[in-house]
Amino acid sequence: MKEYSTKDISNIVGIATPTVRKYAQALEKEGYIFIRNENGFRIFVDEDIEILQQMKQMSNESGMNIVHIASILINQRKQNLVDTIQNESEVTTSVKSEVKEAESLNIDRIDKKYDMLLKEVQELKQLVREQQAYIDERLEKRDQMITQSIRSLQEQRQALLEASTSKEKKGFFARLFSKRL
């Protein structure tokens, strides 16, 4: 199964990259599931190219909005799958296997998305732990500096207080005459 990026799809289908994203978002709203990589970007496969080409063709021919086209295509795919199962009773086993494969593919897509989200949550947890440790360390340093500053100020104040109380209070004349001696 070959994988394509949004830019690859833009070149293959012949539409702008933002249009590819709009088409994909409309399809996802209708329940279509795209494979995503570990960074959360869509990865397109051959099946996705087909539905995007159909969307482009319907948009050019009918002028309908993208959401309505996506709804029609998804319903057609569901109906085609149901019709195939009902009309071909002798091939029921192969149709069931196709349905299972489609379900398996959807399950695989969901599993990949789940794994990616789980990994992202774990990374975010680790980041939060690291940030909390950093914050705690910085707060501890700040508290130590504040405590040290307060102690230093108290020591200076005490020294000034002791210096001022150790001097006798002499009158003006006593101080004046004691300096001359």
Rank of each mutant, 00 (worst) to 15 (best):
E120S: 12
E140Q: 11
R142N: 10
S104K: 15
R157M: 11
R151L: 08
Q122G: 07
S94V: 05
E120P: 07
Q131R: 12
R109W: 00
L161M: 14
T147M: 02
N87T: 10
V82F: 01
T93R: 11
T84F: 03
L160Y: 06
T92V: 09
E90C: 00
E130G: 01
E88I: 04
Q132A: 05
R138S: 04
E155Y: 04
R151K: 15
Q126L: 07
R142C: 12
R157G: 04
R138I: 06
R142V: 10
S152W: 00
Q132E: 09
N87Y: 04
K141P: 01
Q158Y: 01
D115R: 07
K112R: 09
Q79N: 13
E130H: 04
L117H: 04
L139M: 08
Q86R: 12
L124Q: 15
A102E: 08
K100P: 00
E123A: 08
V82Q: 11
L81V: 05
E103Y: 15
R157W: 07
K113R: 11
E130L: 00
L118W: 07
E103S: 15
A102G: 13
T147F: 07
E101F: 13
Q131M: 04
Q131E: 00
N87L: 10
V95A: 10
V121R: 15
E98K: 14
Y134A: 13
S94A: 01
L153R: 05
E120L: 05
L124H: 15
I150Y: 05
L139T: 09
K112P: 02
I107R: 09
V99F: 09
Y134M: 04
E130K: 03
S89A: 08
A159W: 02
N106E: 12
Q79V: 13
Q158E: 05
V99Y: 02
Q126F: 07
Q122S: 15
N87V: 00
Q144E: 12
Q79I: 14
R142E: 08
D115A: 07
E120R: 14
D143L: 07
Q144D: 11
Q156V: 03
A133T: 11
E137K: 09
I146R: 04
L139R: 11
T93M: 11
E90M: 01
A102P: 01
E155F: 05
D108N: 13
D111A: 12
T147D: 03
E101K: 12
E137C: 06
R129F: 10
Q131I: 03
A159M: 05
Q126S: 08
E155V: 08
R138Y: 06
A159H: 07
E101G: 13
S104P: 02
K119G: 08
V121G: 05
E101Q: 12
K96T: 12
L124Y: 05
Y114M: 11
I107C: 08
